[in-house]
Design a protein around this nucleic acid. Sequence first.
DNA 1: GCGTAGTGTTGAACATGTTCAAAACCTGGA
DNA 2: TCCAGGTTTTGAACATGTTCAACACTACGC
Lengths: 219, 219
Amino acid sequence: MTTARGSTRDAIVTAALELFREHGFEGTTMRAVAERAGVSVGNAYYYFSSKDELVQGFYDQLVAEHRAAALPELAGRSDLAERLRLTLNAWITVAEPYRAFAGRFFAVAAQPGNPLSPFSPQSGPARDAAVDLYRDVLEGARVDVDAELGRELPELLWLQHLGVVLFWVHDTSADAARTRLLVDRTVPIVARLVRLSRLPVLRPLGRQVVDVVRLLRGT
Amino acid sequence: MTTARGSTRDAIVTAALELFREHGFEGTTMRAVAERAGVSVGNAYYYFSSKDELVQGFYDQLVAEHRAAALPELAGRSDLAERLRLTLNAWITVAEPYRAFAGRFFAVAAQPGNPLSPFSPQSGPARDAAVDLYRDVLEGARVDVDAELGRELPELLWLQHLGVVLFWVHDTSADAARTRLLVDRTVPIVARLVRLSRLPVLRPLGRQVVDVVRLLRGT
DNA sequence: GCGTAGTGTTGAACATGTTCAAAACCTGGA
DNA sequence: TCCAGGTTTTGAACATGTTCAACACTACGC
């Protein structure tokens, strides 16, 4: 079988994503991926050093789709809570087709040292892209926050996003209704906390939170 | 090889834990476990339906050890922050020998539907035990909290615990120093939030948080 | 055209989690 | 003692992720 220059890799990713969707992660064998891509098993391993690594393709695609779906919806909205809700709901919608087996993916990603981990150096670009989206969410909103807290806030919002994703992969309700409920209930809390953060009573708390975020990031 | 009545299961768990400690989760084969336990591979599968399931033994043991280590330290302390810090540090100390490969365990546990997941029905007892520990932490402290929030607080503190564990499995610093730092910085925030929760400005927020916890639990 | 170095590809072999039919071992009743 | 039914144990067979030595192809200098 002859394929166009450089397309072998793409063929493998495409085949893998198709099969993941059809049979889930476990149900997809490397032999099946290779066969559908029209290559040998060994060849698949020439491009991807493990089955797990195939997931990175899925992951990158998802982040890009999320951004593309969220940004247009944000136009013209300036209420932080509203912007947050739209962004999180956009994720739920975009990711819905993969919910049934995404758990497998995130389990892999949760492993320390795994390149797919959201905290790994290799995921740096994808993570930055995700955090950037929340920077956009924040910048388009009319809110006043302490400058120092403001710098870390996008990362905090991304952590909230991770929490929602964690809930989502465990959510078996139709159309992820329970996750949407969680978003509806979490977003006002976060928005209110952000607003209240300027209160004198809460100032020191804000400082402490900033420190924790920096520790989390590794600084 | 003759073994005392009913001890086969124990022999397998013991062998598995030894080997996990020596070679990590990946590095331990079911064949090796069976061999060290003095049984056949098939026999190991008679008692544990998968390699993952062997981890439940480790998990149960850890929760029990944690409780045993934490409770004596709490005696005589009534400051909530202090009690929280002691409890979390007790975990870090107890779990230290397993840190290098615990990530593998928690990755398994993070899988939706997996019996080991802290949110699964099968983990109910272990989870209740863990939440109960935080109920003790709370009850021994001299703090006044809103009654409704108070009911959900143990579960919230357990969620904080989960967060610390998540950080811990990614922590490669010597003696988990960074995790201890995280505890030192997180505990005052939580303690202060609990104290502030009675402020009129924050009352509605408390209500909202209670709702979220209930949603998380599935009620 | 021809050799050569690098890149891409192959499929059999291997390692290891898991299954299963058969065998061995009970245990209580006749 | 012997049998019947259940429980425990065995190890070979299977499925599938992964490796690797060999082969094919491509590009380039001569």
